[in-house]
Amino acid sequence: KILESLSSDPTIKVIFLCSPGNPTGTILAPADVRRILESDYAGIVVVDEAYIDFCDETDSVATWVLEFPNLIVTQTLSKSFGLAGIRLGIAITTPEIAQLLNNTKAPYNVSTPASELATAALSPAGISTMRATVDLLLAQRARLLAELPKLPGIGRILGGNHANFVLVEILGSGGKPDNARAFNAYRHLAESDGVVVRFRGNEVGCEGCLRMTVGSEEENGVLLEKLGKFLAA
């Protein structure tokens, strides 16, 4: 459908592909991305890889900028590095597109503290710390994927689960995804238990869904306990 839209509408100048996506956490097959890049589409293709560090290294298309001059791959230090506070992202692309981006961005838009923190994060020691953190989160993601279906009132776990969160259905009394119950669970967890998840029931294909960020072993234990008590009540 993407290729059909691109071929039928010449006004489309830029397309954005999220891989993995949010809130489903599903990685795009690199072969599908390549089909778009090898098509007749002459516009810019932006692949958002904010969560790519939670996937296999072969899932990234960042090196493809050497092959496709219309490709931009964006990444961030906000997720696997835990540096959301410095608001620093990365655009990997050709020198020509990079020059255009530099020409249009605000001057001095990266502060000295942000630059120093990013430099430390991308050092060999920083990369090692990031990978150790990712390994811990992947183990805890597997735990949530195994334990959440055991709770009463939990439906399907949706998406590809390639990011640092999981998307689950909250079922109503009829055994179907229930937006009202999911929202009540979201509100109760936040207001009564100090556990913050995300209500995603208003998004396409996500009826009755909560998105839960993978935390530490202790944090995930609290989530499972508090959510289980709410659903069993």
Rank of each mutant, 00 (worst) to 15 (best):
E219Y: 05
A31Q: 11
L231F: 11
F54W: 07
A29V: 15
I170H: 01
E96Q: 09
F16C: 12
P10N: 13
V197C: 14
G43F: 05
N202W: 08
A185N: 08
L138A: 02
L88P: 10
R200T: 12
V166P: 04
T76G: 02
D40S: 10
G85Q: 10
R87D: 13
S80A: 14
K1Y: 15
K176W: 15
T76Y: 04
G159E: 02
L231E: 11
C206M: 09
P30V: 01
E57V: 12
K13N: 15
L6W: 06
S8C: 09
R211S: 12
I157D: 03
E219C: 00
C55M: 06
I90F: 15
L136V: 06
C18M: 14
V73Y: 00
D40R: 11
L77S: 02
R35T: 04
R35G: 10
N179V: 02
E38K: 13
V14R: 12
A29L: 14
Y51S: 04
V166C: 10
A146L: 03
V61E: 07
L122S: 07
Q140F: 07
N179C: 01
T119D: 15
D40W: 07
L88A: 04
A84W: 11
A98N: 00
G228S: 00
P124V: 03
A120S: 15
L189A: 01
H188S: 13
R141E: 04
E116N: 09
P149F: 09
E203H: 14
T58D: 07
D135N: 13
S78N: 10
G221P: 03
E169D: 07
L100P: 06
E57G: 07
N184W: 08
S123T: 01
L28P: 01
G205R: 02
G43W: 07
L88F: 03
I27V: 15
S7D: 11
T76P: 03
A118W: 03
K13T: 15
E96R: 05
E219L: 06
I44R: 07
P152R: 08
S111P: 01
E57N: 12
V61F: 06
F68V: 02
V65R: 09
T26W: 04
E116Q: 12
I154L: 00
N164W: 06
I2C: 10
L100V: 15
K13S: 13
N164D: 13
